[in-house]
Simulated assay, not measured.
Amino acid sequence: MINQVVQHYFQLPRHIQNSISIMKLIDTYRKNLQIEGFESVTHYCVVMAKITDQLLAFLSSESKHVPQLYFYHQQEGVHSFPINIELTEYSSKLYSMKKYLLLADDDLITRFQLMLSAYSVNVYGILPDKVQIVTLMDGKTHEYSPTAEDLILGQQYVKDLKKTKMKQESWERRL
């Protein structure tokens, strides 16, 4: 849901990128969520309130200063690994990537940062100046400036994910 709201918000013409548009998009895409996936109706309401609050804050501020935006969704193929990147900013001075997550611990944030670094070099041939992971449940932004060593770690992590996925698919075919 978060991916869809962010992507469609930035595809809107700038003059209608506002809080009303954010609320409409949240209302549209929240209908795809299954309430049964939450602990209770109260839990669903709390999560939706936090997501709404944080998306209103982050997206409203983003749309005022982002020079260029690109959205990428890498389709899953035989040997690829899918990844959604909600926001990529590019100007002559800065190249950054941003990923919105509902909730993440330090380990997951680190893995996403490494994975986005590897993805960037694979697709664009350069490391981003900055990678940001935004966790909506706590409203935190985790910034990271990748290095060449991080690229090596990220590429190894992606290879390991692919191997694990291939083993799992092989196991499932046997069943």
Score class of each variant (00 low, 15 high):
residue 65 H to A: 10
residue 30 R to C: 09
residue 79 H to M: 10
residue 101 L to T: 05
residue 83 I to R: 08
residue 92 S to C: 06
residue 2 I to P: 03
residue 63 S to V: 05
residue 130 K to W: 06
residue 97 M to E: 03
residue 91 S to I: 04
residue 108 L to N: 10
residue 89 E to L: 02
residue 5 V to F: 01
residue 168 Q to N: 11
residue 152 I to T: 12
residue 1 M to A: 08
residue 108 L to G: 06
residue 70 Y to Q: 14
residue 170 S to W: 12
residue 149 E to R: 09
residue 119 Y to K: 10
residue 161 L to I: 05
residue 119 Y to H: 14
residue 110 T to L: 12
residue 47 V to F: 10
residue 146 P to S: 14
residue 140 K to V: 09
residue 142 H to F: 06
residue 24 K to N: 14
residue 98 K to T: 15
residue 104 A to R: 01
residue 67 P to G: 00
residue 164 T to E: 09
residue 60 S to G: 14
residue 160 D to T: 06
residue 135 T to E: 05
residue 60 S to C: 07
residue 149 E to M: 08
residue 130 K to P: 08
residue 51 I to V: 15
residue 97 M to H: 01
residue 54 Q to H: 07
residue 86 E to K: 01
residue 153 L to K: 14
residue 163 K to L: 11
residue 59 L to D: 03
residue 39 E to G: 13
residue 132 Q to L: 11
residue 18 N to H: 07
residue 37 G to P: 04
residue 124 Y to Q: 10
residue 159 K to C: 12
residue 109 I to Q: 01
residue 171 W to A: 09
residue 25 L to W: 00
residue 130 K to G: 04
residue 130 K to Y: 13
residue 7 Q to F: 07
residue 96 S to I: 01
residue 130 K to T: 11
residue 65 H to R: 07
residue 30 R to W: 05
residue 119 Y to I: 04
residue 41 V to Q: 13
residue 158 V to R: 13
residue 88 T to I: 12
residue 43 H to E: 08
residue 55 L to N: 00
residue 79 H to C: 09
residue 82 P to E: 02
residue 87 L to G: 03
residue 23 M to V: 07
residue 85 I to A: 02
residue 4 Q to N: 12
residue 56 L to R: 02
residue 29 Y to W: 12
residue 81 F to H: 15
residue 89 E to W: 00
residue 133 I to N: 00
residue 19 S to V: 14
residue 144 Y to E: 03
residue 56 L to F: 02
residue 10 F to Y: 05
residue 73 H to M: 08
residue 76 E to P: 01
residue 1 M to P: 05
residue 103 L to P: 03
residue 63 S to W: 02
residue 11 Q to I: 11
residue 7 Q to G: 11
residue 39 E to V: 15
residue 45 C to Y: 08
residue 163 K to W: 15
residue 40 S to N: 08
residue 137 M to T: 11
residue 168 Q to L: 12
residue 38 F to R: 09
residue 73 H to Y: 08
residue 76 E to S: 08
residue 159 K to S: 13
residue 15 H to S: 09
residue 113 Q to G: 04
residue 167 K to Y: 11
residue 79 H to P: 01
residue 58 F to V: 04
residue 133 I to S: 04
residue 153 L to W: 11
residue 116 L to E: 05
residue 134 V to P: 00
residue 100 Y to I: 03
residue 20 I to G: 07
residue 109 I to R: 03
residue 31 K to P: 03
residue 34 Q to F: 05
residue 56 L to P: 03
residue 43 H to N: 12
residue 27 D to N: 15
residue 25 L to K: 02
residue 160 D to P: 03
residue 138 D to G: 05
residue 157 Y to N: 07
residue 40 S to I: 12
residue 71 F to H: 11
residue 28 T to F: 11
residue 68 Q to F: 13
residue 118 A to C: 06
residue 48 M to P: 07
residue 132 Q to G: 11
residue 106 D to L: 12
residue 24 K to P: 02
residue 128 P to I: 01
residue 129 D to M: 10
residue 84 N to F: 08
residue 64 K to D: 10
residue 54 Q to W: 00
residue 172 E to V: 10
residue 117 S to W: 02
residue 12 L to H: 01
residue 163 K to Q: 13
residue 67 P to V: 04
residue 6 V to W: 00
residue 44 Y to P: 00
residue 114 L to W: 00
residue 171 W to K: 14
residue 17 Q to F: 01
residue 49 A to C: 12
residue 131 V to I: 13
residue 151 L to D: 06
residue 98 K to N: 06
residue 167 K to G: 02
residue 174 R to K: 15
residue 133 I to F: 02
residue 86 E to H: 03
residue 158 V to S: 04
residue 25 L to S: 02
